[in-house]
Amino acid sequence: MDGTFICVEGVIGVGKTTLVTKLSAQFQTEPLYEIVAENPYLEKFYDDMDAWSFQTEMFFLCNRVKQLEDIGKILTEGQPVLSDYYIGKNLIFAHQTLDEQKYDQYKRIYNIVSEHLPKPKGILYLKADFDTIMHRIKQRDRSFERKMDPFYIQSLMQDYDQAMTAISDVIPVLTIDTTHLDFVTNQDDLNLIIQQITSTFGSLKENKHD
């Protein structure tokens, strides 16, 4: 029996990676983290999106495809996996950054390479209001995000809402507003998220020692 595969999604800075780290320890699952800072085009992308968007998006796509191919064996062995991204996010970002012609080219490539990748049992969609997102981005202070256009974040937030609504027709989506939640330092807030996950997606391998 394949292991449970759950993806955590949401706009830049919402807390996906931090939550996956917390949940993986709680549920004794294999964490899967997206490769971001290693993208050699990312800094150039934020300086000039038009010039570097296609290279940036293709780097992300190729790396995520390889990662998801690699976890296929883990899942078939019955081990659960929690990921801090869903492969469908590639289309959300590509839609934002590519012109129509390049987006069509990219989408054709995406459809081919993603067809046989593991499909998640569910998606945990984290949200927060715009001011909270911008505060979290500033707080973590990644060098390549300092020049980020706030309008870009606002547009991404809208695209994420639309995409998650569409995805929910084929994959269960649990939406949690984290604006007033501190799951990093507040165990009660983390427990609230855990309770909603188990109620929606069923029990994972919970760590009995916590």
Rank of each mutant, 00 (worst) to 15 (best):
G122N: 01
K119P: 13
R142Q: 12
K121T: 07
H116V: 00
M148T: 08
I137M: 14
H116K: 12
D141G: 14
G122H: 06
K138G: 14
K121E: 11
P150V: 01
S143H: 14
L124G: 02
Q139Y: 13
L126T: 06
E115A: 03
P118A: 06
R140T: 12
H116Y: 10
K138L: 14
P118K: 06
I133A: 04
G122D: 02
G122Q: 04
K121W: 07
R146D: 01
I112R: 05
K119R: 15
F144Q: 09
I137P: 06
K127L: 05
F151V: 10
R136G: 07
Y125N: 02
P120V: 05
R142Y: 04
G122E: 04
D129A: 07
H116S: 04
L124A: 06
D141A: 15
T132G: 10
R140G: 08
F151W: 07
K147E: 00
E145K: 07
S114H: 08
S143N: 14
S143A: 15
I137D: 07
E145F: 03
D131E: 14
F144G: 08
F130A: 13
L124T: 05
D141W: 11
P150A: 04
S143E: 15
D141F: 12
H116T: 09
F144P: 08
K127I: 05
G122T: 02
K138P: 10
G122M: 03
I123K: 04
D141L: 12
D131G: 02
A128Q: 00
D141T: 14
P150Q: 01
R146T: 07
F130H: 11
K127M: 08
D149Q: 00
R140S: 10
K147Q: 07
D141C: 12
K127A: 10
P120A: 08
I123W: 00
F151R: 12
D149M: 01
M148N: 08
G122S: 04
M148V: 13
H116P: 04
I123Q: 03
K138A: 15
K121G: 10
K121F: 03
K147T: 10
D129N: 15
P118N: 06
L124E: 00
L117Q: 13
S143I: 09
M134S: 05
L126V: 02
D131S: 11
I137T: 12
T132A: 15
R146C: 05
Q139R: 15
K147R: 10
